[in-house]
Amino acid sequence: MKPGKPGAPGAVVVITGASSGIGRATAHAFAKDGARLILAARSTETLQEVAAECAEHGAQVITVPTDVSQESEVENLMRAAVEAFGHIDVCVANASVYSYGTFETTPPQVFRRIIETNLFGPVHTARAVLPYFRAQGQGTLIMIGSVYSKITSPYVSPYVTSKFGLLGFTEVLRQELRTAKDIHICMVLPATIDTPIYQHAANYTGHLVHPLPPVVSPHRVAKAILRIAKRPRPVSVVGQIQGTLIPIHSLFPRLYDRCINPVMNVLALRQGVIAPSNGTVFTPDPLSNQTTGNWRTTRTRRLATASAIFTIWSLARRRRP
Rank of each mutant, 00 (worst) to 15 (best):
43 S>F: 02
60 Q>S: 14
241 I>T: 14
89 D>G: 11
255 L>D: 07
11 A>H: 01
65 P>N: 08
315 L>Y: 10
95 A>L: 09
184 H>Y: 05
162 S>C: 04
99 S>E: 04
115 I>D: 01
160 V>F: 00
285 D>M: 06
256 Y>V: 11
67 D>M: 05
190 P>G: 11
195 T>H: 00
11 A>R: 04
295 W>N: 10
184 H>S: 14
268 A>P: 01
194 D>C: 06
284 P>F: 04
318 R>T: 12
101 G>M: 06
257 D>F: 03
229 A>E: 02
90 V>G: 07
17 G>T: 10
202 A>P: 03
127 R>Y: 00
99 S>D: 03
181 K>Y: 01
303 L>Y: 11
224 A>H: 07
183 I>D: 07
66 T>E: 02
226 L>K: 11
139 G>T: 11
224 A>I: 11
20 S>P: 02
56 E>F: 00
213 P>R: 10
211 P>W: 03
70 Q>F: 02
74 V>I: 08
222 A>H: 06
193 I>M: 04
268 A>K: 06
68 V>R: 05
242 Q>F: 04
307 S>V: 07
290 Q>I: 00
311 T>N: 06
36 R>G: 07
295 W>S: 11
277 S>K: 07
25 A>M: 06
159 Y>P: 09
109 Q>P: 00
191 A>L: 03
183 I>H: 05
183 I>W: 02
41 A>M: 07
128 A>R: 08
128 A>Y: 02
136 Q>T: 12
237 V>S: 07
206 G>N: 09
81 A>Y: 02
13 V>H: 05
17 G>N: 10
95 A>F: 03
248 I>V: 15
55 A>N: 02
287 L>P: 01
26 T>A: 09
125 T>C: 14
260 I>M: 14
260 I>E: 04
166 L>H: 03
269 L>W: 00
116 E>C: 04
4 G>L: 13
21 G>Y: 01
311 T>Y: 05
299 R>A: 15
224 A>E: 13
272 G>P: 11
36 R>D: 04
13 V>E: 05
230 K>W: 01
289 N>L: 11
218 P>V: 09
37 L>I: 12
40 A>S: 12
292 T>K: 06
28 H>R: 14
108 P>G: 09
4 G>Y: 00
28 H>E: 15
91 C>D: 02
64 V>A: 12
2 K>H: 04
168 G>R: 12
249 H>A: 14
307 S>W: 08
148 Y>T: 12
297 T>V: 12
35 A>V: 07
305 T>R: 14
283 T>R: 13
252 F>D: 01
115 I>R: 03
273 V>P: 01
277 S>L: 02
200 H>M: 12
106 T>H: 05
90 V>H: 03
235 V>H: 11
137 G>W: 06
309 I>K: 13
219 H>A: 12
294 N>Y: 04
156 V>S: 11
123 V>A: 13
181 K>S: 13
131 P>M: 08
151 I>Y: 01
30 F>I: 11
270 R>F: 01
91 C>Y: 08
